[in-house]
Design a protein around this nucleic acid. Structure first.
Lengths: 348, 348
DNA sequence: CTGAAAGCGCTTACAG
DNA sequence: CTGAAAGCGCTTACAG
């Protein structure tokens, strides 16, 4: 299965030292740009290193220095748009600064649990970790502490560690206000999470914001119109079906994510309802497909969140990086009105 | 930014040896399950190791053994569903066998090029690599050879390395036949790739299959009805817009991916066409959202491809793994008829 | 500015 | 079955 063995012996720091006529210590200093190396020596070392295609063995460097130049990225899922987008932007940011990402997808086969973060995933393997919307257990946090790893959390906060996210409250408030401003009074919400889903953080803030806005406008909140979902489009379609089929149904639906909004739109159409004429739907995210589907949404810049988190972590690792924040950043959101929202149908 | 320093000195193999009253060599053998260790000794070593929370330093193990237990996964994009799904299933499969994934997203800011795979991404960092739909340049292949790394390619083949994929020809043949069987004669195709997109493999096989089926049924192929796209939904929407707006338009569209099919459906609706009454659309993939969008498609099991590739690689690394193939596997596809295809409108 | 040497924490022949 | 020792390829005080 392997091609003919063209494997070549890679050159080591010793080869470079011999060839350049200096000690390995000097090679090490020269190549890493430390001071106290004469310009002439440095130049010669670089030249030889290039000729020999020398690249320091990361494995040896790590053992000696205690640093691996890799950061662990931990996600509860990977296949959902939000997470994939984060991973992509984190990877790019880290790579620009000579760091790499070791990826951990903690999704398990069972719905109500996930894999735990363990010592052998992290120990001497990563210099730090970034969590993606992942509430850590006490044991996990203890582990990270014990290993002395800096951590930054995107979305769901982790203890007092630096956190990058959007203003959840504001996002859902914006979405709900938009529906209200169109004249809707009968508004449903989808996005509470079954309490047994240990690995999904209940976005309580979003639901609270929805309720606040309803209350502020003196609108009646209908208990049966607060829907639970596992946040996929497929499940949202079935989660909303019954509600949309009933005669006494809402004229608008606020979904806590675009994927759920898409599911709801599908369910509406399946019930013969037109969007937005019979039902307005709004989401949160601005998923890649939202534009093409004409979904009104509150946009969050996911790539920016990944970038910010990576930069904060790099700074904690002592890497010189643009940007100043070191503890918390809230990325702005923006209402994007498309074709899925409109005034309610004239009441009959 | 870091929490109070609860960092603890982690125990090393020397600690375990001392505590168990044996040499480090014996600890090493015992813990790795090598033979030539007496049951009693092994038991004692395990006990002590557990007590001390000992986990071998991967960094030291790697330096000594030359193996890192990590495999590099290289993708041209990460945010697209296909790639994220692959990465997720690869990660899970590898982890079950004690391996980890180091992720490389080669997408660049510019559209017409991508980042190259370099020595310092791979050298002493990974034991093998899996490429995701990524044609390797000669230099890159040479590099991988020189480093002696086993490689398995998903999708786009890489030289004579093991390859996991679907039967491209069959998939598009199935899609096209489905349209023809419904009575369509005026069929367009979207999915050729701009030749400057170095990092996307032109899926020539799919286009060829489309043409073959058209020809086999004596159907006229209209040159303007073969559309180029960068394979995103957004671009497909604009790529198809002009064609769908014209009076002389097709009654059906075969898209080489579901994301493009979604874009085309959106464009059709924007032009006031009904799907499937005025235009049938079929894709290839069975994207997570295809079900909810009612898209007819030819399903490919992406997770299975990731799993197969990971298992082939593990076997090449000498890891005992279920399954037998060691060189090539073709994962089956399946037509899934949903609501986006129907017989053509009665000709006027 | 440069070198000799210890050390990072394992694995792996080699003896016994 | 077990141990002593070399070796993996760097980095980092410590001298000079």
């Amino acid at each position: 299965m392997t091609a003919p063995d063209r494997r070549r012996r890679m050159s080591t720091i010793t080869d470079v030292a011999r060839e350049a006529g200096v000690s390995v210590a000097t090679v090490s200093r020269a190549l890493r740009g430390l001071d106290r190396v004469s310009p002439r020596t440095r130049e010669r070392v670089f030249k030889v290193a290039t000729e020999l295609d020398y690249v320091a063995s990361p494995t040896a460097t790590s053992l000696a220095s205690g640093r691996t130049q890799v950061v662990g990225v931990v996600a509860p899922f990977l296949t959902r748009w939000f997470f994939a987008t984060l991973v992509s932007s984190i990877e790019k940011t880290l790579r620009q600064h000579g760091h790499h990402v070791l990826l951990f997808d903690l999704e398990d086969d069972t719905y109500d649990q996930r894999l735990p973060l363990s010592q052998n995933m992290l120990w001497k393997r990563v210099d730090g970790v970034i969590t993606l919307n992942l509430p850590l257990t006490v044991q996990e946090l203890e582990l990270v502490d014990r290993l002395g790893l800096p951590l930054v959390a995107i979305g769901t906060p982790v203890a007092d560690r630096p956190n990058v996210r959007i203003d959840e409250d504001l996002a859902m408030r914006t979405a709900t206000e938009h529906l209200v401003s169109l004249g809707h009074e009968r508004i449903a919400y989808i996005g509470t999470v079954p309490s047994n889903a240990a690995h999904i953080q209940t976005p309580q803030a979003r639901l609270d914001a929805f309720r606040d806005v309803m209350r502020a406008h003196g609108l009646q909140e209908h208990p049966d119109w607060i829907l639970e979902s596992d946040w996929t489009a497929d499940s949202a379609a079935s989660d909303t079906r019954t509600l949309l089929a009933s005669a006494d149904r809402p004229t608008a639906l606020a979904a806590a994510s675009d994927e759920m909004a898409m599911g709801a739109m599908a369910a509406a159409r399946a019930e013969g309802l037109r969007v937005p004429e019979d039902l307005s739907v709004i989401g949160v995210d601005d998923h890649v497909l939202s534009n093409v589907l004409g979904l009104t949404t509150v946009r969050q810049d996911v790539a920016a969140q990944g970038r910010e988190a990576a930069e904060i972590l790099l700074r904690a690792l002592g890497v010189d990086t643009p940007g100043g924040s070191t503890s918390a950043v809230v990325v702005p959101t923006e209402l994007i009105v498309r074709a899925s929202t409109a005034p309610p149908p004239p009441s009959t």
